[in-house]
Amino acid sequence: MNLLLAAGVLAVSLLGGARQTEAADCPFDEWRTYKNTELRRTADRKAYFWITSRTAIDADGAPKAYHPDDVGKPCGATGAGLDCPSNAGYPNKSWWPTVLASDPTNPSKAFVQPSGPAKGFFVSKTALQDSANGNERDTARYVDASTIPYLVFPRPFFQLVGTGKPGDLGMAFHLETQKQTAFIVADIGPDEPLGESSIALFKALGGNNPNPRNGSGVASGKVLYLVFPRSVDQRPRKWPMTQEGIEQGAETLLDAIGGMSVLQACATLD
């Protein structure tokens, strides 16, 4: 089934308030709760989903995510970079080197890109990286939040058995805009509830210029996130992938569990 059409069917069914589907029609069983969000997964543990209205926008990996001119300034709605350096922990938090590449000549400072389209910006990293690219200061090593729909897992969530790891694929469906997108799990976030994703993911779901600085520009309503844990193990390399490759991989995995008709039966359990 065409995914865009199917997503529309799913959203219409939800907006119409249909709640007559029985749990027996849904191959996803109750699994666990993470920070008040209920997760359900299949008996073979190859897929699980949750539904949430929480949104947090991640700019990490984008070549223009953070700029030195914004250091020390209040995190307003606008600035030189897509996000505020303070949200990357820079310069006062000890963990900023996990978000920004450090300067090899002065590791206490973040590296500034000397050339290219993002000249003058810091190099922002993601947990998912191209292992074949040994240059930590090359933006091509990371997953660009401005162009690739990706999901962020809180660090404690990664540590739970069965949730998956960076490079896993999934599908996100916005239950009100009726838009959908495939995604890749690409970054690690703080100990917060589920719902953080890249700029590109929220844009694909109907957002209008999603702003990591203040959270604006995201389409309101609930999103269903379906994850295929350890699906990354089916590929020879975790990263890079094209968006087309992410979509094809996620669609194949979705078809293997019954396609959109299965999610239509499960989504009303929220």
Rank of each mutant, 00 (worst) to 15 (best):
G258N: 04
L100S: 10
F28T: 01
D144G: 06
F121N: 04
F228E: 03
T126K: 09
K203L: 10
K93I: 04
D144K: 08
K222E: 13
L194T: 04
G215W: 02
Y90G: 12
N2S: 13
A47E: 00
A182W: 02
A24F: 00
A6V: 03
A56H: 03
L205E: 03
L82Q: 13
P193T: 08
A200R: 04
W96K: 13
G81I: 05
P107T: 08
P63Y: 07
T181H: 07
A204P: 04
M171K: 03
V185D: 04
K93W: 05
P104L: 07
R137E: 06
I199N: 09
G258E: 09
A11D: 02
T126G: 06
N211E: 07
D60K: 12
W50T: 09
G8H: 01
W31T: 11
V232M: 14
C26P: 08
A65P: 08
G76Y: 00
S108N: 13
L10P: 01
Y225R: 14
P149L: 11
I199M: 14
P117V: 11
N36Q: 14
H174I: 07
S220H: 02
Y90I: 15
G89W: 11
V12I: 14
A140S: 14
E38T: 12
D44I: 01
L39K: 06
T21I: 10
A18K: 06
T21S: 06
L226W: 09
M171V: 15
M260K: 00
T268I: 09
E196M: 14
L100C: 12
T105H: 07
E22N: 03
D70L: 11
F153H: 13
K203A: 13
K179S: 07
T42H: 01
L205K: 05
D168T: 05
T52V: 11
R141A: 12
A77C: 03
A7E: 05
A11S: 14
Q243W: 01
G206H: 06
D60I: 04
P91N: 10
Y225P: 00
L100A: 10
D187G: 05
G221K: 10
D83S: 15
A118H: 00
R40K: 13
E176Q: 14
S53G: 10
K203N: 04
D233S: 13
P91E: 12
P154I: 12
S198V: 09
S94N: 13
T52Y: 05
R235S: 07
F153K: 09
S146H: 08
M171Q: 08
C266F: 09
D60C: 11
V223Y: 03
G76P: 00
L224S: 02
A256L: 02
T181G: 02
P156K: 11
L151F: 09
G8P: 00
E244W: 02
Q180F: 07
S86M: 11
D69S: 14
G258K: 04
V112D: 04
P210N: 09
R137L: 12
L205H: 04
F183I: 10
K165T: 09
P97T: 12
A200P: 05
A267G: 02
A140G: 06
T33K: 09
F153Q: 03
Y66G: 13
M260P: 00
W50L: 15
S131E: 15
Y142D: 07
L39W: 02
F28L: 15
A186L: 11
D58M: 12
A65D: 06
F28S: 02
